[in-house]
């Protein structure tokens, strides 16, 4: 039983991180109806920028703070550039056009980030404790081993998820975002500044990408694969629904726990190595029975 709990816990902790990246997608989808395929590339770009600046500024009085401020400034500029150069010309265009545009942004950012900062593995140490600890020793024999790094990452990601959920549900800007998502023209007609909202939402998505990139980067080193991990958010969204913050959270937890349990308990029967693609198969199965996801809105088009 202790082993099962250990697997489950590790899955849930991974799931919180998936939720974090998925939230970046949800933010933009809610505000613009666009699925931002560039979210993974933004994770990589933000983390690369941060880690390389950290190296450049290492001899200054506050390298982490300075690197963070400059990286945030860069993510804001990136959001403004995307709004001005990509989104504004495509207002009221079909959703699929906007989606294709984000594919272009993804490829651009992948290449631009590596050209600007390099393609090597960069070690990122922001003081997250290393090593592991045993918990629940009185409940299970031998206890449950948990990596401290994962625990801290989970707490940070969890706090950010809660903050974003509040931002969306309780603030004026959050409501404006939802209005924009429902109908660009209607939102504009009641005085919601579309361009401003888009810059805000892409900036917030950029900050989420930065946090995700820094957390993962400190675990794995900052390198190209960070952009691939973000793809794990896709099944999370399909499971949870594109428009739902709660869905992203629940979906992340299900996917995280599901893939770890599947690898341990089903993997041996099919040759193993199913952890990575199990999430997609789970989402595929879900797509057949509930295409809008667990918490997604059902759209009915009248023709």
């Amino acid at each position: 039983m202790g082993f099962f709990v250990e697997v489950l816990l590790s899955g849930l902790m991974a799931g919180v991180l998936y939720s974090l990246v998925a939230l970046g997608f949800v933010l933009i989808f809610k505000a613009s109806g666009v699925f931002n395929f560039a979210q993974g590339a933004m994770v990589l770009f933000a983390a690369l920028t941060f880690v390389r600046l950290l190296d450049i500024l290492k001899d200054t009085f506050a390298p982490i703070t300075l690197a963070l401020i400059i990286t945030i400034a860069m993510m804001i500029m990136l959001a403004m550039a995307i709004e001005r150069l990509v989104l504004r010309p495509l207002v009221n265009q079909p959703g699929i056009s906007l989606f294709m545009a984000t594919l272009g942004i993804a490829y651009f950012l992948d290449g631009f980030g590596q050209t600007l900062w390099g393609s090597d593995i960069y070690t990122l140490d922001i003081g997250i404790p290393k090593g592991s600890i045993f918990i629940l020793e009185s409940v299970f024999e031998g206890g449950v081993l948990v990596a401290k790094e994962d625990l801290v990452a989970t707490v940070i990601a969890g706090l950010l998820v809660v903050t974003l959920a509040i931002f969306f549900q309780k603030t004026r800007i959050g409501r404006a975002l939802r209005a924009v998502a429902d109908d660009h023209q209607a939102a504009q007609s009641i005085g919601i500044p579309l361009n401003y909202i888009w810059v805000i939402v892409w900036t917030v998505a950029g900050l989420v990408a930065l946090v995700a990139g820094v957390i993962w980067g400190s675990k794995l080193g900052v390198q190209f694969s960070l952009s691939l991990i973000a793809l794990k958010a896709l099944p999370v969204l399909i499971l949870g629904g594109f428009e739902s913050v709660l869905g992203a959270v629940i979906g992340g937890l299900i996917i995280g726990a599901g893939e770890k349990l599947a690898e341990i308990y089903i993997g041996p029967y099919v040759g193993g190595g199913i952890e990575y693609w199990f999430a997609y198969m789970l989402a595929l199965g879900f797509l057949m029975f509930r295409p809008q996801g667990l918490f997604g809105e059902v759209h009915i088009d009248r023709v």
């Binding site: 079909p94 699929i96 896709l234 594109f242 997609y280 989402a283 809008q292």
Partner: peptide, 15 residues
């Protein structure tokens, strides 16, 4: 709805 379904299918197929 069609776009949503198409999008979801597309997103799954890419990874």
């Amino acid at each position: 709805m069609k776009y949503d379904l198409l999008l979801r299918a597309l997103l799954l197929s890419v990874p």
